[in-house]
C-alpha cells in the first residue's frame, strides 16, 4: 500500500513560519510521499517559499510539487523553483518523476494547469490575441501533461495539478469564476493517458472529492478545503497491477 500525503494552497509568506512544521513531525510514519499542489507562496517571492522550504528541508520522505498562480505573481517563478529544489523538493511543470517506494514505482506527472472552463462552456482560442493566449496556454499545458503521464513507466501514476480538471470539486465556488478555476482539457489529458489519482488545489471554496469522466479519482487538496496540514490517500499497487493485467487479457 502506497501512502500519498498531499496539500495545496499553503500560501506561505511573512507570518507563516511554523504553521506546518508541527504537523510534519510524524509525516514519515504516515506517508511515503508528500505532494504539494501549488500556491506555495502568497505573492511568488523566493523569500516566501524559503520559509516553507526550511520546514520541508530534511524530511525523510520525497517531496514533489507543482507551482500555482500565486507562485507566478512576482515573475520570479524560476527563483521559487530554485529555492524548493535547494531543499530537495522536486518541482514539475510538464514533467514527470518516478520514485521507488519499497519496490513500487510511483510516477507523478505535474503541471500548474490553467483555466478555460468545462465541457459545453469552455473558452475557445478564437478572437482577440488575449483570448487565444489564455486558452492556448491551457491547451499547451494539457498536452504536456498528457505526454508526461503517457511516458511514465510506473506501477502507479498520479497527476499533480494546481488548477482543477473537473467541475465536481468546485461545488461551493461561484459559477462565474469556474473558467478561472480549471479546464476540462486537463481531465481529457488524464483520461487519455490514464492515471490512478489526480490531485489539485486552487478552489478554496470547493469540495474534496470527484472523478474524471472516465472515473479516475480526483481530490481537491486545497488547504482551506481539507482543513488539515495534509490528507493521506492510499493506493494499492497490487490491485492496480491486477487491473492492468485483466484489462490486457480482455
Amino acid at each position: 500500500m502506497i501512502r500519498i500525503a498531499a496539500v495545496g494552497d499553503l500560501h506561505y509568506g511573512e507570518g507563516s513560519r511554523e504553521i506546518l512544521r508541527p504537523s510534519l513531525q510524524h509525516l514519515q510514519d504516515r506517508a511515503d510521499l508528500l505532494l504539494l499542489a501549488g500556491d506555495l507562496t502568497r505573492c511568488g517571492g523566493p523569500e516566501e517559499v524559503k520559509i516553507l522550504a526550511d520546514e520541508l528541508r530534511g524530511l525523510p520522505i520525497p517531496v514533489v510539487a507543482v507551482l500555482g498562480n500565486h507562485d507566478y505573481h512576482a515573475d520570479r517563478e524560476a527563483g521559487v523553483r530554485r529555492v524548493l529544489e535547494d531543499a530537495h523538493v522536486q518541482v514539475l511543470e510538464g514533467e514527470a518523476a518516478a520514485i521507488d517506494v519499497d519496490g513500487v514505482r510511483v510516477g507523478i506527472a505535474g503541471t500548474k494547469g490553467f483555466g478555460g472552463g468545462f465541457r459545453g462552456a469552455h473558452g475557445s482560442d478564437f478572437g482577440e490575441p488575449e483570448m487565444k493566449a489564455f486558452v492556448g496556454h491551457t491547451k499547451m499545458l494539457s498536452d504536456r501533461l498528457e505526454r508526461a503521464l503517457a511516458g511514465l513507466d510506473a506501477d502507479l501514476r498520479i497527476a499533480l495539478l494546481h488548477y482543477s480538471p473537473i467541475e465536481a470539486t468546485l461545488e461551493g465556488e461561484r459559477l462565474e469564476i469556474y473558467p478561472f478555476l480549471g479546464s476540462y482539457l486537463l481531465a481529457e489529458a488524464v483520461d487519455n493517458a490514464g492515471a490512478d489519482l489526480v490531485l489539485h488545489g486552487h478552489a478554496h471554496h470547493g469540495v474534496e472529492k470527484g472523478r474524471t469522466p472516465s472515473g479516475i479519482p480526483v481530490r481537491n487538496v486545497a488547504q482551506p478545503v481539507i482543513r488539515h496540514a495534509y490528507n493521506v490517500y492510499t493506493l494499492d499497487a497490487r490491485r492496480q497491477v491486477l487491473a492492468a493485467a485483466a484489462g490486457g487479457i480482455s
Binding site: 504537523s23 488539515h228 490517500y233 493506493l235
Partner: peptide, 13 residues
C-alpha cells in the same frame, strides 16, 4: 483555517 494532522487516511484504490 486549522492545519492539524489528519485523523486517518482514505483508500482511493
Amino acid at each position: 483555517v486549522p492545519a492539524a494532522e489528519p485523523d486517518g487516511e482514505e483508500p482511493v484504490s
